[in-house]
Amino acid sequence: MIVTKPRDWARIKANLESIDAKSVFLMGCGQCATVAHTGGEKELAVAKARLEADGYQVTGWAVGEVACHLGGTKLETRKHFGSVDAADAVVVLACGAGVQTVADAVKKPVFPGLESAFLGTVLRSGVYEERCQTCGDCVLDLTAGICPVTTCPKGLLNGPCGGMWNGMCEVQTDRECTHVRIKRRLAEQGRSATRVIPAKDNSVKLKPGSINTRERKGQ
């Protein structure tokens, strides 16, 4: 899931001040931000109280099923049309994609209420780890399901680098070297790792990514 973390409150306030906003509509996300405890109903209630304590009027709030779904978010904001319309600004407690989707769905100024951290795994409640940079050219087939692009701090496809010591990573010295983990898991599964992984095709990851499955079906 997309892991988010709270955004510096002073920045959110400065954003609101920059357009002289006095009233705010709050939006969260029923998926990742709810799971990450950053943009679910509970966190929206906290944000509401905080805004009110700072003198803002909160005209309403909504946690849609999934903020980054344009159709669903349009529907959700329409349901709350009155309170959105009454607000000077909308603050979204979701990832950057969610914020942009809301910004497309409403005519009001929209501000991010969270920082988008990474695409990762929930190791246990409240503990997240980055796992994928959506590079578009996945090598997990060769690396025993451990992503070197993301979990090796240098993103090396072939390793370990010269800084590895006793199996541990040079950069994050409290963590095992990704390449040591990869080679161990490959060995445990009886798979050989002698093959050098060729350089990445960065062209598949040129920004902005877009996929249209409808077009493809029509072909």
Binding site: G155, L157, E170
Partner: peptide, 23 residues
């Protein structure tokens, strides 16, 4: 390969590592 930028004097630099040393 090169040390990670985090360990040097330009800690805000982007480490490129477009290729690794074997490549």
């Amino acid at each position: 390969t090169g040390d990670d930028p985090r360990s040097g004097d330009h800690t805000k630099a982007k480490g490129v590592f477009d290729l690794d040393s074997t490549q």
